[in-house]
Design a protein around this nucleic acid. Structure first.
Length: 210
DNA sequence: GGTGGGATTAGCT
DNA sequence: GCTAATCCCACCA
């Protein structure tokens, strides 16, 4: 397997969000390597998307989102947790893909220690959880995902993908910009109630294109 | 099974 | 001052 190139993140954010499913997020640490398969993502767009942090222009908080494709955008949410995004599109556009859940692969004992639980299903099944398990913090904000300790590896397998409204936002709720691997047990919040959302899950693709 | 609220901080208005 | 792309625990049924 090889590292995804900057090119992968440049063209289209929704496409990248779907194509990131099944890829492997890897963090190489002194203690050892921690990795997991991406099973859930959300796309955040620059146009007509009030839920996107970049929608009101560049600020100190979101400036990494306006950087070149293939960088990390990490921010603190609710004062306690970090969320990890892969920046997409050309520099200055301000779009990204939020990684919402992983299936743990390597470094599980270390994840259990960081998360304070031995429950495998509870290690990386949410955006805040996976950052804690993977050791991702604000220090990773803006770093390159193609040439650092934090990378995403290519992987190819057949996937059944579904989409649904995004979770935890108050605007733009009806856009189907959340993507996940159908039936995967590590997908977060399968019973989350998004009160405003009118649309349910939609199956959008079976199998894998090359 | 389900719901409701608290934790805790940076940055915007 | 208030909000936020969350998580966890206490409480009720």
């Amino acid at each position: 397997m090889k590292t995804l190139s900057e090119d992968f993140f440049t063209h289209d954010t929704v496409q990248a969000a779907q194509d990131l499913l099944g890829k492997i997020l890897v963090h190489s640490l002194p203690e050892g390597t921690v990795s997991g398969k991406i099973v859930e993502t959300e796309a955040y767009l620059s146009k007509d998307d009030p839920a996107c942090h970049a929608s009101r222009g560049k600020t100190k908080r979101n400036e990494a989102m306006f950087g070149p494709a293939g960088r990390a955008y990490v921010y603190l949410i609710y004062g306690m947790y970090y969320c990890f995004n892969a920046v997409t599109r050309e520099e200055g556009v301000g779009e990204a893909v939020l990684i919402r859940a992983l299936e743990p692969l390597e470094g599980i004992p270390w994840m259990q220690q960081r998360r304070g639980t031995s429950d495998i299903l509870n290690l990386t099944s949410g955006p805040g959880k996976l950052c804690q398990a993977m050791g991702i913090t604000r220090h990773h904000n803006g770093i390159s995902l193609t040439e650092s300790k934090l990378t995403i590896l290519d992987s190819r397998e057949d996937l059944k993908i579904e989409s649904s409204p995004r979770i935890g936002i108050k605007t733009g709720v009806d856009k189907l910009l959340r993507f996940y691997i159908s039936g995967n047990p590590y997908v977060s919040a399968r019973h989350v109630r998004n009160k405003k959302a009118k649309k349910g899950p939609v199956s959008i693709r079976k199998g894998k294109k090359t």
